[in-house]
Every structure is written in structure tokens, then in C-alpha cells.
Amino acid sequence: MNQDRELQIQAFLDGELSGRQARKVEQWLAGDSEAQALLRELRATKSALGGNEPQLTLPETREFYWSKIQRQIEAAVPEHEAAQASLWLSWRRYLGPVTAVAAVAMLALFSIKEMGFDEADRHLAEIENLSEHASSLSFRSQSENMFVVWVYNKDQQQSEEEADFADEAVIQ
């Protein structure tokens, strides 16, 4: 059997032949046991693969994975918009809407807390970048009771993005 025939059998299996071509293939399949064996093998492989793509788990926590994505999304947004979005996100992330309004009202009206403080206030954080070259993003891991501030070099981030863009330009 030559390669042309083999590929036609495959195309027949995959529904890639026209009606007329498919009927022609069916005819010589009927009289060719080797071709039938090949079709059976291809069909079994196709059937085994279909719906059985290996299932994998991403090897990073939800928070850390998302923090990197968020950073890249915000890097593409003007800074004042990013600051507003980030502030909005940390409010929504750490407080329910009602608690957020209550916490703001509390902080505005009272400067001194009673002994201990409520759960909402415990998670509030104020982060300020003090270097023009550095930026940061923050997130909280509830399961590990950890608050993280990830600091990165703004200039390096920008030149990596420019290098990627230059690569793409060269390929095209």
C-alpha cells in the first residue's frame, strides 16, 4: 500500500473527503484486508485519544498565579487608573461591600480603636512605593495566614516587554 492510499484512509476516517472520494475509498477498502487493518488501528488510536487529553494541575497557588496575571494586566494600564483599580480590588478582595463602607466610616469617625480590632481592619494594608524604579503588588494567602508584597523592577519589566515586542516584529 503506498503512502497516498494510507493518507486517504486516514482522511476517510477523519471525514475530510468529499462524498464521491469517500465512496471510492469504501470500495477498495472492501477488498483490501491490509487497508482494513490499518483503518482499524487508526480508528482505535483516534478513539483512545478523543476526550483523554492528560489532565494536569497548574503548579502554583491561585493567589500567586493571579497576582502575576494582574500585574501584567495593570502594567498595560496608565498608572492612575492602575492605582484606582488596585485600590478598588483590595477593598473588594478583603472586605465585603457592607463591611467596606462600615470600615471607611469607622476610620473616618474614630482615630482610636477599642481593645482588639475587628476582622476587616486586620486585613487592611497601606502600601507605598518609595522608589521610581520599583513597583509592587500585594495579595493575601488566607490558608497560610500570610500577607505578601511582591516588589519588582519597573524598568526591567518594561524592557522585557519591549524585547518581546521586538522579537515579534522580527518574526513577522
Binding site: P54, Q55, L56, P59
Partner: peptide
């Protein structure tokens, strides 16, 4: 995320590359 990562890993067969490309896809 797992499905997108799995597809990237199937193609790249490298964990770090698959993580990076899947992130880039989300962005």
C-alpha cells in the same frame, strides 16, 4: 487555569514555559 495550563504543557512539555504561556494567554 488547569485546562489552559494542561494544553500549554501538552504542547511545550516544559512546566515553566507552560506556566508563562498560560499566564500570557490570560492577559
Amino acid at each position: 487555569r488547569d485546562k489552559i495550563y494542561a494544553r500549554a504543557f501538552s504542547m511545550m512539555r516544559n512546566e515553566d514555559e507552560a506556566v508563562d504561556l498560560s499566564q500570557e494567554a490570560w492577559v
